[in-house]
Design a protein around this nucleic acid. Structure first.
Length: 594
RNA sequence: GGUCCCGUGGUGAAGUCUGGAGUUCACGCCGGCCUGUCAAGCCGGAGGUCGCGGGUUCAAAUCCCGUCGGGACCGCCA
């Protein structure tokens, strides 16, 4: 991470606590901070660890002074080498200490509810959030906030260098029927009317392209009233961008630069290029559209192996639309007992598979070399081929699913993640662009029409436009996701900028001209005045920062996050408001219905 | 809307399955001793609505029902 090159000395301090080194020996310094631990040895000797964000320095106090945990102090004294045998290698400042200390108590403090150090990692998160201002004093949180700040700065620098213009878009926007549930804001002047908080600046950024801005970006706050998760908050930040007169490669290039610039700024690691795979390949090999490339256990194609199988559970999946695939769990034969294998089977079923076949590979060739309830249904040739394709050795476990192609991929992809995925702080940063997403995903149960995969303004793949009417589900799109270590960082697309193609896509979606005008007119009519070809992207800063900080949960890299139920234990929000306030807004709250 | 896990002095845990006195451990806190410690050490002390409500029982932290709070996940997040 970058460190500021100017001194952070102030009227009250000459140095930061964590900065002092043997080179400072002999200097008279003033440091400020909080009392960490103190070690008293009677009236005439006490050690106080003074802490600021930069670290800890030991101060030697020879007076009888009452200084307690988390008191705010200013200490002035002389930096000196620690006596022989008392050097603390665990501290960056451990070679030195501050002696001849004059102590000024800037503010007394009551004892904190939990220790302000790594032990608070184990404290109930609700309590950490209730006292977030204390939690934030800890090294971990200070580091996380600074990773975040570094990422923001690096992104701004990269976007600026690439000629992007930072434009702010409104927080009070019209409510739109599509997409995520919105937070509503009542209008005081027009009672009964509402603004919404933006789930993203989508409309405004595309209109900036119509407005000739050419390259827009914003570190944008987005708000969605959907259920919270480890990687989802009501409010989150996105690097949002849009470019004019571009093809897909131009967008991927620009985004790659910014995200890789952020990685380098935080870790010093240089990544030259982000690899790409198609959505179809991602599903085939990893069973998810956000593959974690840090580990193997890829899905192995087995459909043709069982083309003429006697095994009924597999025979049904060898035809059109079906697929049989397996994954190898190295060393899994010994690791997974009958009980756990039953649990894996239940898991597969709950994910939508009809069942799960497991094979433990033992010594010997042919079906006899497999330990499995279904081995007796396998021919020797089939058994040998499964071993060859999966690369399975004695002691390995092979899991096989036979189902519709999509189900087979998804179930095994989930099992692959369940069984093999490393924790977030492990391994390299494996970015991947997933391109050629299908334009439509699945079919709406009510209307029978295909549903848009990204949004209805996404450019279909030029080679597939002819299939829009005949086989819409096979149409690929110019939509793409950026994935890092199995986390979806963000997505984007080339947009449709001319009306005829937009009409065709609406038609495939079953949206009439009237409905299109009613729902999207406010958005598309401006295009009539000359929309340039354009495309864009947005990626989640919280997720990127969490991964770079090695945190599993984005709450750890947000100063004031909400709990899973959407509450803030620090402020107790959300809270009821005075009847007067509601009256002014023309709002009446209905009694709770349970 | 659903599934699963958790809730015990300020903090973290054990105790809950198999009911028997608010029992235990570590940290913190308060007081005392202590001149080279560094998650200092030694001695002493205080601190509790076992989340809340109801039920079963002679007896409930423990069993049952409900509820609140926290977490993980499914749905949801075009």
């Amino acid at each position: 991470m970058s460190t500021p090159d100017h001194s952070q000395a102030t009227a009250l301090r000459t140095h930061l606590c964590g900065q002092l080194r043997p080179a400072d020996i002999g200097s008279t310094v003033s440091v400020t901070g909080w009392v960490g631990r103190r070690r008293e040895h009677g009236e005439h000797l006490a050690f106080v660890d003074l802490r600021d964000y930069s670290g800890i320095v030991q101060c030697v106090i020879n007076d009888d002074i009452d200084v307690r945990s988390e008191y705010v102090l200013r200490i002035t004294g002389v930096v000196r080498k620690r006596p022989e045998g008392t050097i603390n290698d665990a501290l960056p400042t451990g070679q030195v200490e501050i002696g001849d200390c004059e102590v000024e108590i800037l503010r007394k403090a009551v004892p904190p509810p939990f220790p302000i150090d790594a032990r608070a990692d184990d404290v109930d998160e609700n309590i950490r959030l209730q006292y977030r201002y204390l939690d934030l004093r800890r090294e971990r949180m200070q580091r996380n906030l600074r990773v975040r700040s570094t990422v923001n700065a690096a992104i701004r620098q990269s976007m600026d260098q690439q000629g992007f213009v930072e434009v702010e878009t409104p927080m009070l926007v019209p409510s739109t029927p599509e997409g995520a549930r919105e937070f509503l804001v009542p209008s005081r002047k027009e009672q009964g009317s509402f603004y919404a908080l933006p789930q993203s600046p989508q409309l405004f950024k595309q209109l900036l392209m119509v407005g000739g801005v050419d390259r827009y970006y914003q570190i944008a706050r987005c708000l969605r009233d959907e259920d919270l998760r480890a990687d989802r908050q009501y409010e989150f930040m996105q690097l949002d961008m849009e470019m004019s007169f571009v093809e897909q490669d131009d967008v991927l290039d620009a985004v790659s630069r910014s995200v890789l610039g952020a990685v380098e700024a935080v870790t010093g690691e240089q990544i030259d290029e982000i690899e790409r795979i198609t959505w179809h390949e991602a599903m085939n090999r990893f069973g998810v559209d956000k593959p974690d490339l840090r580990f193997g256990m890829e899905l192995v194609e087995l459909t043709d192996v069982f083309a003429n199988t006697e095994f009924k559970a597999f025979a049904g999946a060898t035809g059109e639309g079906g697929a049989i695939k397996g994954i190898r769990v190295p060393g899994g034969a010994g690791e997974y007992g009958r009980n756990q294998l039953d649990k894996l089977t239940d898991r597969a079923k709950s994910l939508g598979a009809k069942g799960l076949v497991w094979l433990k590979i033992v010594d010997g060739a042919g079906a006899a070399g497999l330990d499995s309830p279904v081995a007796k249904f396998f021919s020797d040739a089939e058994a040998d081929e499964v071993r060859a394709r999966t690369g399975g050795d004695a002691g390995d476990l092979v899991l096989i699913v036979a189902d519709e192609w999509m189900t087979t991929c998804e179930v095994l992809g989930q099992l692959r993640n369940d069984l093999g995925r490393p924790p977030v702080h492990e391994g390299p940063y494996r970015f991947v662009w997933v391109v050629d997403f299908p334009l439509f995903v699945g079919v709406d149960r009510e209307s029978g029409r295909p549903k848009p995969g990204h949004h209805p303004f996404t450019m279909p793949h030029p080679d597939d436009i002819g299939l829009l009417e005949s086989e819409p589900l096979r149409v690929r799109s110019k939509a793409y996701d950026l994935v890092l270590n199995g986390w979806e960082l963000g997505s984007g697309s080339i947009r449709i900028h001319e009306p005829e193609l937009q009409r065709q896509v609406f038609q495939a979606l079953g949206i009439s001209d009237e409905e299109a005008e009613r729902k999207f007119g406010f958005f598309l009519n401006p295009f009539e005045y000359g929309a340039p070809p354009h495309g864009g992207f947005a990626y989640g800063l919280d997720r990127l920062v969490a991964i770079l900080a090695g945190e599993e949960n984005i709450r750890e890299i947000i100063a004031y996050p909400k709990t899973q139920s959407g509450a803030d234990p620090l402020t107790n929000s959300p809270l009821p408001v005075d009847a007067k306030v509601l009256e002014e807004l023309g709002i009446r709250v209905l009694p709770r219905v349970d």
